[in-house]
C-alpha cells in the first residue's frame, strides 16, 4: 500500500513547526508505522538538531531529489525510536535548486518507502512553501493563539484549499491560565475564525526547550503535557482508537478555587 505525505506548515515562523514534525513523527513511529520526517527548509536546516541527529548527516534531501543518491542513503535512522527516519535539508543549496517535476518524483519515492512522511515546510509562502506542498497529500497547519499567527494560518489555509488540500489545525503553545482569564484566544475562538477541522491542542511546556536542548525526542520525556498531546495527535492521525481532543486546563490551587466559588470574598 502507498504511504501518505503530510506537510506541516504555518506561514508564520517560530510557531513550532519543526518541534511538531519531530514529535508527531516520533510518536507515529512508536505506534509501529514506518515514518520519515523530511526537512524542506533548504539552506536553514534545523530538524536534524531538534532530533539530535545532526552528527550523522551524509546525504540530504536535495541529493535525493537530484538523484545523486538513493532515498535510503539519505535516510538517517533514529536509534532511539524504531522505524523513524530523518531526511535532512541541504544547508548549501538554495530554494530554487529544484523544480516541481523533480519534487513530484521525490514524493512518489517517499510514498513507496514509508507509511507516513511528514514534510517540515519552511516559513513563508514562497518557493519553499510551494515545493513542500507539491509533495503533500495532506496538510497540518500549526498556529499559536496570537493574532499574527492566526492571520498567517488563514492565508496558508486559503493557499492549501486552492490546491485541493483540506488542512487540519494544530494549536500550539496554549497557556491555559491566560485562556481562563480571557487574555488568550481559546481553541474555540480560533476554530471559529479559521473554520477548519481541529487536529489537536498542545499547551506551552518547558519540556519542549529541554527536549531541543538535549536532542532527546519530546515524546520520550516523562511528564510532558506537550509530549502527551503529540502522542494523542499521532494516534488521531493514525485513526487508531481516536482519543477525543483534550483541552489543556488551568489547575488552580484549592484556596483560589474556593475563593472563586464563593465569588464575593476578596
Amino acid at each position: 500500500m502507498e504511504g501518505t505525505n503530510i506537510v506541516i506548515t504555518s506561514g508564520k515562523g517560530g510557531v513550532g513547526k519543526t518541534t511538531a514534525t519531530a514529535s508527531i513523527g516520533a510518536a507515529l513511529a512508536l505506534t509501529g508505522k514506518k515514518v520519515a520526517v523530511v526537512d524542506m527548509d533548504i539552506g536553514l536546516r534545523n530538524l536534524d538538531v531538534v532530533m539530535g541527529l545532526e552528527n550523522r548527516i551524509v546525504f540530504n534531501v536535495i541529493d535525493v531529489i537530484k538523484k545523486k543518491c538513493k532515498l535510503k542513503q539519505a535516510s538517517i535512522r533514529d536509534r532511539r525510536v524504531e522505524n523513524l527516519y530523518l531526511i535532512p535539508a541541504s544547508q548549501s543549496d538554495n530554494k530554487d535548486a529544484v523544480n516541481t517535476q523533480e519534487i513530484i518524483e521525490f514524493a512518489k519515492i517517499l510514498r513507496k518507502e514509508f507509511d507516513i512522511s511528514l514534510i517540515d515546510c519552511p516559513a513563508g509562502i514562497e518557493k519553499g512553501f510551494e515545493n513542500s506542498v507539491v509533495a503533500a497529500d495532506e496538510a497540518i497547519v500549526i498556529c499559536t493563539p496570537e493574532v499574527s499567527s492566526v492571520r498567517d494560518a488563514d492565508r496558508v489555509i486559503g493557499l492549501l484549499l486552492a490546491r485541493s488540500i483540506t488542512p487540519k489545525l494544530l494549536i500550539n503553545r496554549i497557556i491555559p491560565k491566560m485562556v481562563a482569564r480571557g487574555d488568550m484566544l481559546s481553541h474555540e475562538d480560533m476554530v471559529e475564525v479559521l473554520s477548519i477541522e481541529l487536529l489537536g491542542l498542545v499547551e506551552m511546556d518547558d519540556k519542549v526547550v529541554v527536549s531541543t536542548n538535549t536532542g532527546v525526542p519530546l515524546v520520550l520525556q516523562r511528564n510532558s503535557n506537550a509530549g502527551e498531546a503529540f502522542h494523542r495527535i499521532a494516534a488521531r492521525l493514525n485513526g487508531q482508537n481516536v482519543p477525543p481532543i483534550q483541552v489543556p486546563r488551568y489547575r488552580r490551587g484549592l484556596f483560589r478555587k474556593l475563593r472563586s466559588f464563593l465569588g464575593f470574598i476578596g
Binding site: V150, G182, D183, S186, E192, S260, G263, G266
Partner: peptide, 28 residues
C-alpha cells in the same frame, strides 16, 4: 476585590482576547 468577581458581575467584555478576535475577523 477579586478580578474574578468583577468579571462575573460586569460580563467578560474587558477580555483582551475578545479584542483580538474582533480585530482578527476584520483583518481577515
Amino acid at each position: 476585590m477579586s478580578s474574578d468577581f468583577i468579571r462575573k458581575v460586569f460580563g467578560r467584555s474587558n477580555d483582551s482576547k475578545e479584542v483580538a478576535k474582533k480585530r482578527l475577523k476584520l483583518a481577515l
